[in-house]
Nucleic acid binder design. Structure first.
Lengths: 161, 161
DNA sequence: TTTGTTGCAAAACATTTGCACCCTG
DNA sequence: CAGGGTGCAAATGTTTTGCAACAAA
């Protein structure tokens, strides 16, 4: 049973020292790829670059298109393949909304959940200590050891109402 | 952008009197279809029948296959089309796990969320008023009108630890 | 009779995979 | 130079749609 997709927190976490930085340099990206036991290629660096500069929550297609504009010598298979590896290593987090294409973000240093407008797709990040605590309690009550959770709120944003 | 699939609660709810029953008769199904403003056909009744007897959380393909065995005169387009209408009317709830095909169940009468063991797959249902209230507050703070939510907790159950 | 519904086949869509070539380590 | 990584194209799997025939109201 593979539930890693759901783990907004939990799952494997990347090494602390790499996740501490707020902004990323070319060198960090190389280190990340090596850390994963993979070969460093310019495509992989470009994918990481693209994830770090654009706005969060991009689809694989969006990553591919933004890279294609700069250098048409890239295939979407590479994007999908590397994104999947990044997800499995915990460096990126995959978020899915219904039947929509998956969206990716560099795994945030501090945990948060999402509030999504179901009309325009706008995403607001939030964190709520109390809810986190209550979740732990619920797990404890049922004698579960909590390893992760998924919480997404859906609604209509101010401009779409 | 359609996210109604996520609405574990919220969205349009079916008329109370129809949701009160624990078991369904042929007559109930007819009433449900009429309630939705649609024509009553044997395909639609068969789909509802299939949802009510089998185990919960079936895929559209599973519904189609089970109906096809009894009567090969049915197309999957019909299943998908009616399932979507049932979902929009709130009579069935769609659940998605990662990239897997959508699964459907007759909308449960009382709202709950799930605590899942990621080792053995055991599912515990729970409801927490406080969390529900906090979610409403979070939405309000960001000027969203909350229409639904998705909350799944993952962990290891007592026996799997 | 009128309008909604059906099955079929084809399209749409996101994602994965096979393969010959290429590049990193 | 060995083994992974790449782009391309084709395959996959789910869901949607166009359409002519058809059936419920």
């Amino acid at each position: 049973m593979d539930l890693t997709i759901h783990l907004a927190r939990g799952a494997q976490n990347p090494p602390e020292k790499l996740m501490k930085r707020e902004h990323w340099s070319h060198g960090d990206f190389k280190r990340i790829v090596r850390e994963m036991g993979l070969k460093v290629t310019c495509q992989r660096l470009a994918i990481l670059e693209s994830l770090s500069v654009g706005r969060a929550h991009v689809t694989a297609q969006e990553v591919y298109e933004s890279l294609f504009k700069q250098n048409p010598e890239i295939g979407f298979a590479t994007v999908y393949r590397f994104l999947k590896k990044l997800k499995n290593s915990g460096f990126v987090t995959e978020v899915r909304m219904g039947g929509m294409p998956a969206r990716y973000e560099l795994t945030p240093r501090k945990h948060h959940d999402h509030l999504t407008c179901s009309i325009c797709g706008k995403i607001v990040e939030f964190a709520d200590e109390t809810i986190e605590a209550l979740q732990l309690e619920i797990a404890k009550k049922h004698k579960f050891q909590l390893t992760g959770h998924l919480m997404e709120l859906y609604g209509h944003c101010e401009t779409c109402r």
